[in-house]
Measured scan of single mutants.
Amino acid sequence: NQASVVANQLIPINTALTLVMMRAEVVTPMGIPAVDIPRLVSMQVNRAVPLGTTLMPDMVKGYA
């Protein structure tokens, strides 16, 4: 099973992602693959992402 990107903290809307905000976890359903974490750094979320939420492609501006 491939790990997905999960929020390590509450990420407010329009926040630029940093490594500290994300962790890799095997979850269902799968979200953004953990291998993409370096690519996500400095991209912004388009909604508030609660702690423990799996990041989906439509939550990150410019990802999809």
Rank of each mutant, 00 (worst) to 15 (best):
G62I: 04
G52N: 11
N1V: 15
N8M: 07
V60P: 01
A64Q: 15
K61R: 10
M30E: 15
M56S: 13
G31L: 01
Q2F: 11
Q9A: 09
T28V: 10
K61C: 08
E25K: 03
I32D: 01
S4W: 02
A34T: 06
M30D: 15
L10M: 09
P38W: 04
A34W: 11
I13Y: 07
R23T: 07
Q44K: 04
G52H: 12
I13V: 08
L17F: 02
G62N: 14
A7C: 06
L17I: 08
L55S: 00
L17D: 01
N46W: 12
V49W: 02
L55A: 00
Q9Y: 08
V20D: 13
T28H: 06
V27D: 02
L10Q: 10
T54R: 03
P57G: 13
D58A: 09
Q2E: 15
A7V: 12
V20A: 10
V49D: 01
Q44M: 09
V45P: 03
L10S: 12
D58S: 09
V5T: 05
V45Q: 00
M22V: 09
V20W: 09
L19H: 11
T15M: 08
T53H: 09
Y63F: 12
I11A: 01
Q9K: 07
L55Q: 00
K61V: 12
M21Q: 07
V41E: 10
A7I: 04
N14K: 05
P38F: 06
R47T: 12
P12M: 05
K61D: 09
Q9H: 11
L55W: 01
P33R: 03
S42P: 03
T28I: 04
V20F: 06
G31H: 01
V20H: 10
A16G: 04
A64N: 09
A48M: 08
N8V: 10
V5Y: 00
V20E: 13
M21S: 10
P12I: 05
R39T: 13
M22Y: 02
M43Q: 05
I37T: 11
I11T: 01
V35L: 09
K61M: 12
D36R: 04
A16W: 06
N1D: 15
P38A: 13
T54C: 04
D36K: 03
D36G: 04
N8F: 09
A24Y: 11
L10W: 07
L17N: 00
T54W: 02
R23P: 02
I11P: 00
M43N: 13
P38C: 07
R39C: 10
P50W: 13
R39F: 14
V41I: 10
I37G: 04
G31T: 01
A48L: 09
I32K: 00
V45Y: 00
A24W: 06
P33Q: 09
V45L: 09
S42T: 06
T28Q: 14
M30P: 11
G52R: 05
T15Q: 10
R39I: 11
N46F: 08
L17Y: 01
P57R: 05
A64I: 15
L51R: 12
L17R: 00
T18S: 09
P29C: 15
L17A: 00
A7Q: 00
M21R: 03
Q44A: 08
P38I: 04
I32T: 02
I11M: 06
M30Y: 12
L55G: 01
T53R: 08
R39A: 10
Y63V: 04
V41F: 06
G62D: 13
A64H: 13
L19E: 12
A34L: 03
T54Q: 04
S4G: 05
L19N: 08
Q44P: 13
P12D: 12
N46E: 13
P29M: 13
A64G: 15
V6C: 15
D58L: 07
V26G: 11
I37H: 02
P50T: 13
N8H: 14
L19Y: 08
P50R: 09
R39M: 12
N46K: 13
V60Y: 01
V6E: 02
G52I: 02
V49F: 02
V6L: 10
L40W: 02
V49P: 02
V26N: 08
S42Q: 08
V60F: 04
P50E: 14
P33K: 07
L40R: 00
E25Y: 03
L40Q: 00
I13Q: 11
S4P: 01
M43G: 06
A3Q: 07
G52F: 06
E25A: 07
V26P: 10
P33H: 15
L10I: 13
I13D: 06
E25R: 03
M22K: 00
A16H: 10
